[in-house]
Design a protein around this nucleic acid. Structure first.
Lengths: 146, 146
DNA sequence: ATAATCTCTATTATATTAGTAGAGTATACC
DNA sequence: GGTATACTCTACTAATATAATAGAGATTAT
């Protein structure tokens, strides 16, 4: 797993779409402005997310993107794994990688797999509905502070 | 955390040095051959590891590298964190990164921190002595199979 | 028709990773 | 002291991945 700009953009985009779930499609331009993501870059990310089934799209005048499923049915784990690869390890899974050719001899592998399981247990139990609720709570707290 | 070739090489090198702990220094060339790592690349890695105090070196005819501490006193976590960065998240910690400027508003951050803690709990409790023992056991099992 | 919006492929710039090169410094041993 | 051996340090290069940018094309509401 590697949280790059692209994967971060993707996560934030899905969270935004979760916030607008049920209100019809949201245009790329709106997302792009609100989340401060280069429009053309976001386009590509959304197409990826669409191919994976996380979002749906609609063309034309009232077109835009919407979440493919209810926010409570999309986990952080699913999306992260899709856009950022497996949690751990990276190299051990890599085909080009020669260090782990005989898997039985790589003593590190077991540990990375345990890390992987442990991380998955966390992120597979967080839905975008959860994140959305937390986000709303945070914004409220932030507003009161002012 | 990102397990690149460099970090993988570093981990394997330390494991090898752990196996030779107490027997005097091991030359780069030996390590390089045994672990199949380009010599000049390994040089740099070893210098990094030396600066971090994981290994010690000795120049001259009977020179080479040796572990700076007892294998039981070096954890996988320490080394991994040094050579591969923090376990998670990458982007949230990045200075250039603008997405998490107001930390209180990044709902993902909490999750990544939980993942981080969870992974740390694992890798901070594995020493190179542990890994060495496991490695020996594995090799034995492998030999019997033949 | 046409304006708005998504779709797709190609290209470019920058950063990171992996590896290479070579001159320099210390040490054991004869 | 000379010499072989081995670590030290800095710079450079190639390959790959990341982050964008560009533009022509397809769909839909009005």
């Amino acid at each position: 797993m590697k949280i790059t700009y692209k994967s971060d953009y993707a996560l934030k985009t899905i969270l935004d779409l979760a916030a607008h779930f049920g209100n019809g499609p949201v245009a790329i331009n709106d997302l792009s402005q609100r989340l401060d993501i280069p429009t053309k870059f976001l386009e590509q990310i959304l197409l990826d997310l669409k191919r994976a089934g996380f979002v749906e799209s609609r063309r034309g005048k009232v077109g835009g993107y919407s979440l493919g499923r209810h926010p409570g049915k999309i986990t952080l784990g699913e999306v992260t794994r899709f856009i950022a690869g497996p949690v751990e390890p990276i190299a051990c899974v890599d085909k080009k990688y020669s260090g782990c050719q005989d898997i039985g001899k790589c003593v590190f592998r077991d540990v990375w797999e345990e890390v992987n399981r442990s991380a998955s247990r966390i992120i597979d139990n967080v839905t975008f509905e959860d994140l959305l609720k937390k986000s709303k709570k945070m914004n409220k707290a932030f507003t009161y502070q002012i």
